[in-house]
Design a protein around this nucleic acid. Structure first.
Lengths: 144, 144
DNA sequence: ATTGTTGCAAACTATTTGCAAGGCG
DNA sequence: CGCCTTGCAAATAGTTTGCAACAAT
């Protein structure tokens, strides 16, 4: 699933920097859907000069190149996903982890939404909310 | 669909104030899914002392009483909806309006999501993105 | 009279931006 | 070497909070 980001950057007139490679690699290597701060904290030890501003600037470029999608699960910060396919996500209301949900078979449903609203559809996001298996085990209360 | 908010507030130990009635009435009377600022601007003429802080505080109470749901369509502010049913929403990428989508028939799909993730499901949000009929007519460019 | 509420202003936080120093090509 | 990028710090914007005056019960 990981793309050749070096070529992608060059072809689009962006310079290849260690920070950009590190941020994309971190995103492509995880299914945790990290926030900007989570990425920053993970990369900080190996890239001591890494700044949060660079994380945000890089993510914006990656989004332009369609190498990353931005998730909005209803928290106070965004999550980022190097899997740009249109799959649903689910967030645990107790520990806030964000997981993937297997892609849904749309069939004629998508068509129906376009017809009933008159919109020219360009995309969608599906979010589920619940309590993850681990939090169920420790009888977590349903926060948030 | 509008509930007896006066009784709801009293029964839950909240006082009934003109501001609270006005905010809920405004939400119950529209399908525009207003943001806090939109509500504030609409109510300001009739309630000159209305403050944004009161809008936020009131919405939090209404959410606790399940009289309002909070939408996160990916803009930089939240939208609010007095229709607390679990129906999908769609936002125009050109003019940012947010519309309802007819509720979807889930059938066994919801069950499938619970089974495949192991989550104890509590809710979901579906967001669609596209260009609304009005913006299509004026050949709007697809912003955002 | 008591207790909760309002509304101003200040605080907070995620994100964005300006700009001088530094790195890529 | 020229231009883009970095990273610090400051700015921004939505939302939250502290608190004294005020209103609901």
């Amino acid at each position: 699933m990981e793309r050749d980001i070096t070529a992608m950057l060059r072809e689009n007139g962006f310079k290849v920097t260690p920070q950009r490679l590190a941020i994309y690699s971190a995103l492509a290597a995880t299914k945790a859907h990290p926030s900007a701060e989570m990425l920053f904290n993970e990369l900080q030890p190996h890239y001591p000069t890494m700044s949060l501003a660079t994380v945000y600037k890089t993510i914006e470029i990656l989004r332009e190149l369609n190498l990353v999608q931005i998730l909005n699960t209803g928290e106070d910060s965004f999550r980022y996903d190097a899997d740009t396919s249109n799959h649903p996500h689910i967030r645990c209301l107790a520990c806030q982890r964000v997981d993937d949900v297997d892609p849904v078979e749309w069939g004629s449903f998508y068509q129906t939404v376009g017809d009933s609203t008159g919109y020219d559809l360009r995309g969608h996001q599906f979010y589920f909310y619940g309590v993850c298996p681990a939090c169920q085990r420790e009888g977590a209360k349903n926060d948030q």
